[in-house]
């Protein structure tokens, strides 16, 4: 499959090895996607740079109301994090829904985003939470909103042959007094890709009379995790409430552009599903926002 395997101990060493590879070396973290792609011949490379031994890229911490998640944190790390369960339980729930325990133990949150599957369960809540990704390349460090990380045609604006995603950070919805939730439908309760998933963020204004921020992200209904901007507009203009959530969910489902899929169901079914699940998820998020002790 490949001729060389490196296990750098630092980000600098990893970048140097990638540069040496001259575009024929690829980053491997958990490898749960990459190894499959290499085995099947969907991708090829001469060298693998396994970054799982890089120190200090595996952490989940909070500082001043902001959460910082090292890109090498595994799905199990996220699923079992007491801090995440308290500050942003939707992300822990999303991580729990990924694959099997064997996959969650190895697959990383950085890889889940970089591999850019439109239904990536952790990417959908991270985008809803307005997460910023830190990307390190030979040219320096840059920070990119997840919104801006995806290419419209699919994939991320990151070159796995010379760059590394090192961290995600976002404002803790708990600290911001916001409500957030994750919704998902799959063919089974375990070991099944999502037929539809969504994450929403609602930031109430004074007296909860209006919303200062509303975000709805859906997958897999486009080539990337999709912001439902019309649905969000309904919420920003009208506020919160069951009737408004119904309208917002209907608008969101019009924006969803799923394909007919043998595995995931017909496009028509999934658009209907989008309306129901976005509605329920908005209700859940609002309940979470209102249950906070002010």
């Amino acid at each position: 499959m490949y001729r060389a395997y490196y296990r750098p101990k630092s980000v600098a060493e990893a970048l140097a090895l990638l540069q040496e590879g001259g575009g024929r070396a690829r980053v491997l973290a958990g490898g749960t996607d990459l190894m499959l792609q290499l085995k099947k011949g969907e991708l090829s490379c001469d060298a693998v740079v396994d970054i799982s031994g890089v120190k200090d890229l595996r952490y989940i911490r909070e500082e001043g109301g902001r959460l910082y998640i090292g890109a090498l944190s595994t799905h199990t790390d996220l699923a079992e994090s007491a801090l995440l369960e308290k500050e942003a339980p939707l992300l822990a729930a999303a991580a729990r829904s990924v694959g099997s325990l064997q996959i969650r133990n190895v697959g990383t949150v950085g890889g889940n985003v970089v591999n850019a599957q439109p239904a990536a369960d952790t990417a959908v809540p991270l985008m809803a939470l307005k997460a910023v990704a830190t990307i390190v390349s030979p040219a320096g460090v840059r920070q990119v909103f997840l919104d801006d990380l995806y290419r419209p045609e699919g994939g991320v604006k990151l070159d796995p042959t010379c760059e590394l995603l090192t961290e995600f950070s976002f404002v803790s919805p708990r600290a911001a007094g916001a409500g957030a939730a994750f919704g998902r439908v799959a063919r089974r309760r375990a070991l099944a890709l999502p037929v539809f998933n969504t994450a929403v963020l609602l930031v109430p204004g004074a007296g909860r009379a209006f919303l200062t921020e509303a975000r709805i992200v859906m997958g897999p209904v486009a080539r990337l995790p999709l912001r439902a901007r019309q649905g969000e507009r309904v919420l920003l203009e009208q506020g919160a409430g069951e009737e408004i959530f119904l309208q917002a969910a209907a608008a969101a489902s019009l924006e969803a552009a799923p394909r007919d899929s043998v595995f995931r169901g017909s496009a028509r079914y999934r658009k209907k599903l989008a309306r129901v699940i976005v509605y329920r998820t908005l209700l859940q998020a609002w309940e979470n926002a209102c249950s906070r002790v002010d």
Partner: peptide, 25 residues
């Protein structure tokens, strides 16, 4: 392909699918 779990082994106490796990890792 890391789906069925017949190849499960423990690495440092954690279950992994050895069929998609590089030996050097």
């Amino acid at each position: 392909e890391g789906e069925c779990g017949a190849c499960t082994v423990l690495v440092n106490g954690e279950t992994v699918n050895s069929c998609i796990y590089p030996a050097w890792k």
